[in-house]
């Protein structure tokens, strides 16, 4: 029966989602919400039962809080009838995932996510929403359009979602046994040291902070001496003695990301730039053409002569 637990949990969750999506009385939605929360709890239990490993309780609490917020906001996002609210709920999802990133020591990504996603992309969505909803909302100021109020075929969608969720959840709980164990400290240290060796200024600062008398970089050496580790922490063997390096000089998370980005994926970075540029071009082109067209339409609607005359088109044809 163990193997089926995740599936059953997903079934329950999906049913909860279905209850939230379908048109029905408020009570049923409340039931759905409760069922959903329960399911989340069950899943946490399943995880801790099935998967080996320790977790820091404080962090676990924070994780549970952020996760609950994220999932609740996400559910609310797809169930809310007003697109603007949906967008705002999405901002909430983004915020809580930023919190999760912080828990995973991905500070850079956490803030980048807030700045780029919540700050830029979502604002664009909001603009477009406002642009688009203008006309309809003028008519029915407090009624969202019909198509926003009701989910279409929630059953089929939820079934698809159920299968997917069941599959992935099962894989990410019972399937993790096939993974190698998490990194050990030595590996992390080696990686940190290796990166520090690549950063000459920081390395120099670290060494000189420990021993200001040293000549750095050492004379006559082709390369800087490697960082070594013992039980007390990192040190460098230079001029016949060991120089301890303070841990605060070890590369930060952000430095890791940056180094990884430019050292391992330079071409992808370029491509990403090109994609953004082209997207900008594309947006400009699409918008421009549309503007011309609609301008003419507006003029014709207003009883004026269009700028690009109809006669032109007839002559062309």
């Amino acid at each position: 029966m163990d193997g089926l637990d995740p599936y059953i949990a997903c079934l329950a969750g999906s049913f909860a989602l279905y209850l939230l999506l379908r048109r029905g009385p408020l009570v049923m939605k409340l039931v759905g919400a409760l069922l959903g929360l329960g399911t989340m709890g069950w899943l946490v239990v399943i995880c801790s039962e099935v998967v080996p490993g320790e977790v820091d309780p404080a962090r676990n609490v924070l994780f549970l809080v952020f996760a609950t917020i994220a999932i609740s906001a996400a559910v609310r996002m797809i169930t809310h009838s007003r697109p603007v609210y949906a967008a705002l709920y999405f901002v909430m999802v983004v915020m809580s995932s930023a919190g999760l990133f912080l828990l995973m020591e991905a500070e850079f990504m956490a803030f980048a996510l807030i700045i780029v996603y919540a700050g830029a992309i979502l604002i664009t969505y909001m603009f477009v929403l406002m642009l688009a909803q203008q006309a309809s909302e003028a008519e029915q100021i407090d009624e969202a359009p019909l198509y926003d109020r009701f989910a279409r075929e929630p059953g089929a969608a939820v079934i698809v979602g159920l299968i997917l969720a069941g599959t992935i959840v099962t894989a990410s709980t019972t399937g993790l046994g096939q993974l190698p164990p998490p990194v050990d400290a030595a590996t992390v240290n080696t990686a940190n040291g290796a990166l520090l060796e690549q950063l000459p200024n920081q390395y120099r600062d670290a060494v000189l902070a420990a021993d200001p008398d040293l000549v750095w970089p050492p004379e006559g050496a082709d390369s800087v001496p490697p960082i070594q580790w013992d039980a007390d922490g990192p040190y460098v063997h230079v001029e016949g003695r060991d120089v301890r390096i303070d841990e605060e000089f070890m590369p930060s998370n952000t430095q890791h990301v940056g180094w990884s980005l430019v050292a391992s994926f330079p071409a992808s970075l370029e491509v990403a730039g090109v994609i953004l540029l082209l997207a900008m071009f594309g947006a400009v082109v699409l918008a421009r053409r549309q503007a011309e067209h609609s301008e003419d339409e507006l003029r014709v609607d207003a009883g004026l002569k269009p700028v690009h005359t109809i006669e032109d088109e007839e002559g062309g044809a």
């Binding site: 490993g53 999932i71 159920l162 992935i168 959840v169 990410s172 993974l179």
Partner: peptide, 19 residues
């Protein structure tokens, strides 16, 4: 960051994806 943590995050991720 144990396997348990990973699985928690993965389950969260899959739930968000499904939603």
């Amino acid at each position: 960051f144990s396997q348990l943590s990973l699985s928690q995050y993965l389950v969260l991720s899959s739930l968000l994806f499904v939603i």
